[in-house]
């Protein structure tokens, strides 16, 4: 065998990232989770998702806007349960 060894000196791979969420789109702004909320320009770290205790996910900016606009206790826009940030 003339062949001794095949080696890759580097491997440049391509991947796409996605939010590990059940839904495709944000229930508030109807934009894709993998995109960003209407106020942001750059997706990803700059426009993160947040989960409520009800396991519904929204763009952080979207749900904050929602929560802040509510006078009393805010509810999840999807299931009307009381809104609690997950893990808090």
């Amino acid at each position: 065998m003339g062949l001794k060894n095949f080696r890759s000196s580097w491997w440049h791979a391509v991947a796409s990232w996605t939010w590990n969420a059940q839904d495709e789109t944000c229930g508030i702004c109807r934009m894709a989770f993998d995109g960003c909320c209407p106020d942001c320009k750059i997706p990803g770290d700059d426009c993160p998702l947040i989960w409520g205790s009800c396991n519904h996910a929204f763009h952080l900016h979207c749900i904050l806007k929602w929560v802040n606009s509510q006078t009393s206790q805010a509810h999840c826009p999807m299931c009307r349960r009381e809104w609690q940030f997950k893990g808090s």
């Binding site: 001794k4 491997w11 791979a13 990232w17 939010w19």
Partner: peptide, 26 residues
């Protein structure tokens, strides 16, 4: 990646990219 950027995860597109190979013959 998943650990660092939780809850984001990676989906590889394995057919894309570039590889530099060294083929060692006798």
């Amino acid at each position: 990646f998943n650990e660092i950027k939780i809850p984001r995860k990676l989906l590889w597109k394995k057919n894309l990219g570039a590889v530099k190979l060294e083929l060692q013959f006798e």
